[in-house]
């Protein structure tokens, strides 16, 4: 009897914790929106974060994008070869990259690189009471610490996705045309006829959402962490897991709405 009650106790408390957490994320998000429109806008801070989230993630995004495109071309080739439709590899790669893999993989990579860093940074600041210092100085830490990160992520993710799209298709082309000897003209023609502008733009809209998700998750976990140095590590891990899962779940719903 007591055991059964304990089970319900656990279940109830975990549900409540989740709902509470969702609520406080939302509250923080509202706070961010409020501070975002309140001048003065801290442009130098935003640019610094843009460099961190965008420019410094470029290399890893290019690397993932290229190899994803290459492997898609290779796999697609084995499939399409059965129907003598090798030239469709190009459009498959392009469509897959622009719609799905470009935005998602970029977001996951940026989560791993920048989202985790956000959580760790803010967590450390929390532990070393730097955030409290902001309050002491009557400056709002949300405005100085969180808003620039979120704005930067929302702006940078689509840009990184563009790069990922491009190098992904390029990677597919280099595997498809010189290595697998697919007709270059047919390869490009299929990309141009089958991929539409909407495919690219919807991918970019998705990636902006992903930017929002990963930066909010990173900032929230870092900002609200507790428990010293150990807590920093825990917050970082949680931020990455939360962001990654949310990105994939949201990806489904965004895709369902947009396409």
């Amino acid at each position: 009897m007591k055991r059964a009650l304990l089970f319900f106790d656990n279940l109830g408390s975990s549900v409540m914790r989740t709902v509470e957490e969702a609520g406080s994320v939302l509250l923080m998000f509202i706070d961010v929106l409020k501070w975002m429109v309140k001048p003065p806008l801290k442009l130098d801070l935003i640019i610094k974060q843009m460099e961190f989230v965008g420019v410094k993630s470029l290399f890893v995004v290019v690397l993932t994008g290229t190899f994803t495109g290459m492997v898609m071309a290779l796999q697609g080739y084995y499939g399409f070869r059965m129907f003598n439709a090798e030239s469709m590899v190009g459009s498959t790669v392009a469509l897959g990259i622009t719609r799905e893999l470009g935005p998602v993989l970029t977001a996951i990579m940026v989560t791993a690189r920048a989202g985790s860093a956000m959580a760790a940074e803010l967590g450390t600041m929390r532990v070393t009471e730097q955030i409290d210092a902001y309050y002491v100085m009557s400056a709002n830490p949300v405005k100085y610490l969180i808003v620039p990160r979120i704005v930067a992520a929302v702006l940078m993710l689509p840009l990184l996705t563009i790069v990922a799209d491009f190098v992904g298709i390029l990677g597919g082309y280099f595997v498809g045309v010189p290595i697998l000897h697919i007709n270059a003209g047919a390869f490009m023609k299929n990309i141009v006829t089958i991929v539409s502008l909407d495919d690219i733009y919807n991918g970019l809209i998705k990636s902006a959402f992903f930017g929002l998700i990963l930066s909010v998750a990173g900032c929230y976990k870092g900002f609200t962490m507790t428990g010293g140095a150990e807590g920093v590590g825990k917050a970082t891990t949680e931020a990455v897991v939360l962001a990654s899962v949310s990105i994939l779940v949201c990806d489904y719903f965004l895709t369902a709405i947009m396409f």
């Binding site: 840009l159 990184l160 563009i162 790069v163 799209d165 491009f166 298709i169 990309i191 141009v192 991929v195 539409s196 502008l197 495919d199 690219i200 970019l204």
Partner: peptide
Amino acid sequence: AALILLAYMSFRVGQ
């Protein structure tokens, strides 16, 4: 750079 790439792809696809 990213915007140039976007413009290029848009041009090719939406040509």
